[in-house]
Computed example of a mutant assay.
Amino acid sequence: MRIAVTGGSGKLGRHVVRRLTADGHQVLNFDRVGERGPGMVVVDLRNYGQVLDVFLGLDDRHSGFDAVVHLGAISAPGLLPDAETFENNMLSTYNVFQAARRAGIKRLVYASSETVLGLPFETDPPYIPVDEEYPARPESTYSLVKHLEEQMAVELTRWDPELSIIALRFSNVMDVDDYADFPSFDTSVMARKWNLWGYIDGRDGAQAVARALENGQPGFDAFIIANADTVMARSSAALAAEVFPNVQVRKDLDEHETLLSIDKAKRLLGYFPEHSWRNHTTGIED
């Protein structure tokens, strides 16, 4: 496919561009920062005219796209004032979705967030492992925007039944270099409680994008994307019992099984994590 990737210079975006290119797709990165070259075009996603223009064509670079992967955003709460986060992320996503529709692009995959599940879980989750079945519980402006983006996607796909928009609720993105710090998380069970001790290896995040592009169906759907294990050495059952004693655990948990359920992504997208921080810190190659 011919694929436009917004935010392809970011931590997850670099893995996505690399994976999709390796899979044989023609990929063009739209971003405001990053290494300039034939694979990147500088685009301000807050400017609808720019977004529509580059989706429709760009001189001899391309003449249109089959799909869009939208990752470009302020990437976390608290990096900028709340109003700036809201304006940047909400406007950028509207521009990308609407411009794609106007350009006749029917396949969109974009980065939603684990934050819509209720992070930092100062209020207990309704059950463990958390999944996509309960209503969004945004607790920050950043998360509120992610929730509103999902609602926008619901309506846009209602307007256009042929349109496919897949929201991937990514956990905290990690590179291999980050794994050296993981053993230190065990010094305090509360240090990573805020996202139920979850993470996503950037390479597995890219795999999820590839699977969503391959297997996404018309309409809107949302999937939690995390690695198969937690960031902790102690068992998942012990973590749940100690920190969330009043929360129902809905299944027998494997020793280090993620508490951010990826069952739906496995079942419908064919997503199966291939990497784990444990392999790197023990010297086992994955």
Results as ranks from 00 to 15, higher is better:
Ala76Gly: 12
Arg19Tyr: 14
Arg14Ile: 13
Arg46Met: 13
Asp82Ser: 00
Gly104Trp: 09
Val54Thr: 07
Ala99His: 11
Glu35Arg: 07
Val27Leu: 06
Asp82Pro: 08
Glu114Leu: 15
Tyr48Pro: 03
Ala100Asp: 06
His70Asp: 04
Gly34Arg: 05
His70Thr: 07
Thr115Ile: 14
Val17Arg: 00
Val33Asp: 11
Gln26Asp: 15
Leu117Ser: 14
Ala99Thr: 13
Val43Leu: 02
Glu84Thr: 08
Asn89Thr: 10
Ala22Asn: 02
Val54Cys: 11
Ala83Arg: 10
Leu79Pro: 08
Asn95Ser: 01
Leu28Asp: 00
His62Met: 10
Gly104Gln: 03
Glu114Thr: 15
Asp23Gly: 10
Asp53Thr: 15
Val68Thr: 06
Leu28Arg: 10
Gly72Pro: 03
Val51Ile: 04
Val27Asn: 00
Gly37Leu: 08
Leu28Lys: 13
Asp53Gln: 15
Gln50Cys: 06
Gly39Glu: 11
Tyr110Ile: 01
Ile105Asn: 09
Gly104Ile: 11
Leu108Thr: 00
Ile105His: 03
Ala83Pro: 02
Leu58Glu: 01
Leu45His: 01
Phe65Met: 00
Glu35Thr: 11
Gly57Lys: 08
Thr21Lys: 02
Gly34Thr: 01
Leu71Lys: 06
Val109Ala: 00
Gln26Val: 15
Val42Ile: 12
Arg61Met: 12
Leu108Glu: 03
Arg101Ile: 15
Ala22Pro: 02
Gly49Asp: 13
Asp66Cys: 03
Ala99Arg: 09
Gly24Pro: 02
Phe55Leu: 13
Val68Phe: 09
Ala103Leu: 12
Arg61Val: 13
Phe86Ser: 08
Glu84Cys: 08
Ala83Lys: 07
Asp44Arg: 07
Val116Cys: 00
Tyr48Gly: 05
Ser112Asn: 04
Pro77Lys: 11
Leu91Asn: 07
Asp59Ala: 10
Glu114Ser: 15
Phe97Thr: 01
Arg32Leu: 14
Leu56Met: 13
Lys106Arg: 12
Thr93Glu: 09
Asp82Asn: 06
Arg18Lys: 14
Asn95Gln: 01
Gly78Lys: 00
Asn47Lys: 10
